[in-house]
Simulated scan of single mutants.
Amino acid sequence: MSERFAEAAVRLAGIAGLWFGWSPDAFWRATPAELAAVAKAAGGDAGTAPPDSGTLARLMEAFPDG
């Protein structure tokens, strides 16, 4: 295993643990397709249009910053 691969794998395992709650064992048992599917689901649908100004205004009113 090259050092470059090892560093990337450790970083990706850490991200999977932080974002998805995966244990190291779950990460190493997952296929690349499974990891990609979970990452896509966590990121939402990239094909969805961004919210319009009315939606943003309602969200800002419902969830003020301060």
Rank of each mutant, 00 (worst) to 15 (best):
W28P: 00
G47N: 12
M60W: 10
E61V: 10
P64I: 04
A62R: 14
A46D: 09
E3A: 13
D52G: 15
P24A: 04
S23T: 15
S2K: 02
G66V: 11
A26M: 08
A57H: 11
A39W: 00
A8V: 15
R4S: 07
K40E: 07
G54Q: 12
A8P: 00
A39N: 00
E3C: 03
D45K: 03
A37R: 12
G44C: 02
G47E: 08
A39S: 06
P64Q: 04
L12E: 15
P51Q: 05
K40H: 05
G47L: 12
S2T: 11
P51D: 02
K40Y: 04
A57S: 12
G44R: 01
L35C: 11
L12Y: 04
T31L: 14
D45Y: 06
G14N: 12
R58V: 08
M60Y: 11
W19L: 14
G44V: 01
A6W: 02
G17M: 01
R11Q: 13
G43E: 06
D45E: 10
G43Q: 04
S53Q: 10
D25F: 09
L56E: 09
A13S: 10
G17L: 01
E3K: 13
A62I: 05
G44H: 00
G66M: 10
A39L: 07
G54Y: 12
A46N: 05
S53T: 11
